[in-house]
Amino acid sequence: MIARHRTRAIAGLAFAALTAASSIVLAQPEDDPVAEYRAMMGDDNPAEFWVMRGEALWSEPRGPASVSLEQCDLGMGPGVVKGAYAHLPRYFADAGQVMDLETRLLHCMVTLQGIPRKEALKQRFGDGARESDFEALAAFVAEESRGQVLDVPLDNPAMEKAYALGKEMFFYRAGTHDFSCATCHGQTGMRIRLQQLPNISEAEGARAAYSGWPAYRVSQGEVRTMQWRLQDCFRQQRLPQLDFGSQASIALTTYIAHNANGAVMDAPGMKR
C-alpha cells in the first residue's frame, strides 16, 4: 500500500484511485510521486472525456457560418487530423505566420465558422461547469497523433525566426523575481519542491515535457493545453500576461517542440 506521506501529497484527489492501487505493482522510483500516481491510473485517463467531446465538436456545424471544423487545415490538408499534431507548430501560408495547434484552431473558428475572435477566446480555458472548446478540441487532435514521432523542422525563414525568438525568450530574465524559463527548466536532474522539472533546452527534457501536452491536470480536474501551460509559467514568473495565440506564445512553443523533435507523442497525458 502507499506510504502516508505520499498519500498526503496527492490528498483530496485520489481516494478512488487509491482503492484501486493495492493490486498494481508500482514500478516508478520512490522520489517521483507523480509518476507513481500515473502508474496507478494506468490506461485510465479522464482526458478521454475531453477527447470524446472534442471529436463531437470537430464535426458539429457551429458559429454564424454554421459549418464544422472538418474543412480546417491543420497542416496536412483540410480535415486531416491524423498525425497533424506531430507536425505542429508549422508555417501556414494562408495565415502568413507560424501557428501552434490552439492558434490554428482559433484561426479555423474565426475564418471558417465565423466566430468573432473575442468570443472564441472567452472560454479559452475551462473552469468547472464552463467548458473550453479549445481544451476538448486540442485533446481530440492530440489523441489522433498518439504514438507518432514529433517532427517540427525549421524548414523556412518564419520557423527559424520563431525558434530564435522562442529561444531568446526562454533565457531572458525579467520581472520582479528576475526569472527566465531557464531558471527552472535549464538544468538537468534538479527539482523544485516535489517537482522534477525537465530541462527543456535539451532534447531529452523537452521530449519528456512536450510529448504529454495537452494533459489532464489532476490538481485541476481539467485538460490543459500548451497555451495554458505557458501562460501559467508566465504568471509564476510574475511576467506580463502571455496572450493566447500571441506571437510570443507560438515562438516559445516552437522552441520547445523543435527541441523535442523525435519524441513519441503521448498526449493527452496526465500531469500533477
Binding site: 483530496g12 484527489l13 485520489a14 481516494f15 478512488a16 484511485a17 482503492t19 484501486a20 492501487a21 493490486s23 491510473m41 485510465d44 479522464p46 472525456f49 489532476v218 480536474g221
Partner: peptide
C-alpha cells in the same frame, strides 16, 4: 464529497 473529480474506481 472527498472522492476526486472524474474518479477512477478499481475493484476485483
Amino acid at each position: 464529497p472527498s472522492v476526486s473529480k472524474n474518479p477512477l474506481l478499481g475493484f476485483r
